[in-house]
Design a protein around this nucleic acid. Structure first.
Lengths: 196, 196
DNA sequence: ACACGAATAGAACGAACGCTCTATCCAGTA
DNA sequence: TACTGGATAGAGCGTTCGTTCTATTCGTGT
């Protein structure tokens, strides 16, 4: 039988994944230790290896997938609120900047740091990160095609929208300023509008 | 008296900085050990601490500054070859993609990984990274203003040019594909042209 | 009451980490 | 020939890493 569980409590496994995702978002893969994860997740090292026999690597893959779902949810929410795709992207940059500032410029993209550290060194993690980016691009592309943009135009725009958001958020973190994201929003809207 | 040195040989200090920059570009800050640096730079641990008493942190700052100068040189070269700024950016994306592919998708931005790992954890390194981004933006802005773009337009475009290059290179690395950079080049040129 | 697997718990392992320390080498100067 | 200080050399410090291991507890079906 499946595990009986109250609606609002989450299991140990999920708590470990969320903690790992948040820690690697802020510190990256290498700087995040399993001891720290187990402590902050209020789990023991035994539990961590019970749920993730593959160790730190497997845990990182799950953390990246969690970050994938998290940001996808963020995009869906923004796309549901705004009908116009260009306006929706601008709303994204605004919300992203606000969240970033409120976290003391610490909570950037939950995938990027780990992704960069894994390039050429941890294929499973890199693959999970690639899946995430592709997932996000698909959400943007579908939003654009539903607004009447041609398939190939929407495909290319989706690439640049995600990549520019990524780069602008990185820059905003490093310079502790909302400007890069605000500028990115305006430019992306202008770029999208230029294809109408 | 200054050190006498033949034109083409480089000193131990410079060799350590270059090695550190290349290693941190590929592996990031945390995954790069001082033992590995000293071995690959053909220097001893004693020499490393002799030239960099501040240890790994100080070494990382120098490595980021080295990466700063390196990419600035790359931008200057591209801007000198192409008169038109939009064409120059496209040339940048092409060369960047080629270098990336030739390195087996390993040699991305020499600053980004270390910068992300340092956010909120190592202020000196973060500052060096911020200086690098600002330096590169200034190069782009000057190129644009020299071609007749208004100051504020050039300022904003410089932000998005650098940030989009950054995000596209990251995406190209993770997906091992030149497409993100090729698309970024086309879109940035279109965005620049839209302000003429 | 009993059994059994899932889950929890944390001690302990070898390896690697950043860094400190002392010793040695060697060119320039008196 | 002695002295000096920059540079080289590497053993060893304490700590932390990811991982393994055995033991115990918990929850549920019989």
């Amino acid at each position: 039988m499946g595990t009986m569980r109250t609606q609002h409590e989450i299991g140990t496994r999920e708590r470990i994944v969320r903690t790992t995702s948040r820690l690697m978002q802020r510190q990256g893969y290498e700087a995040t230790g399993l001891k720290q994860i187990s402590q902050e997740a209020q789990a023991t090292l035994g539990s961590v290896y019970h749920f993730f026999p593959g160790g730190k690597r497997e845990l990182a893959v799950e953390a990246v997938r969690h970050g994938d779902r998290e940001f996808a949810e963020f995009l869906r929410a923004a796309f549901d609120k705004e009908d116009d795709p260009a306006a929706a992207i601008v709303a994204c940059t605004r919300d992203l900047a606000e969240e970033l500032r409120e976290s003391g410029w610490l909570d950037g993209c939950p995938v990027t740091t780990t992704a960069l550290e894994s390039v050429g060194r941890a294929p499973e993690i890199q693959q999970a990160a690639e899946d995430a980016y592709e997932n996000w691009r698909t959400l943007v592309r579908d939003k654009l095609t539903r607004s009447g943009f041609a398939g190939d135009v929407a495909h290319d725009l989706a690439h640049t929208v995600i990549n520019t958001l990524e780069g602008a958020e990185l820059s905003a973190q490093v310079s502790q300023s909302e400007a890069p994201l605000e500028i990115a929003g305006r430019h992306l809207a202008r770029l999208i509008d230029s294809y109408r």
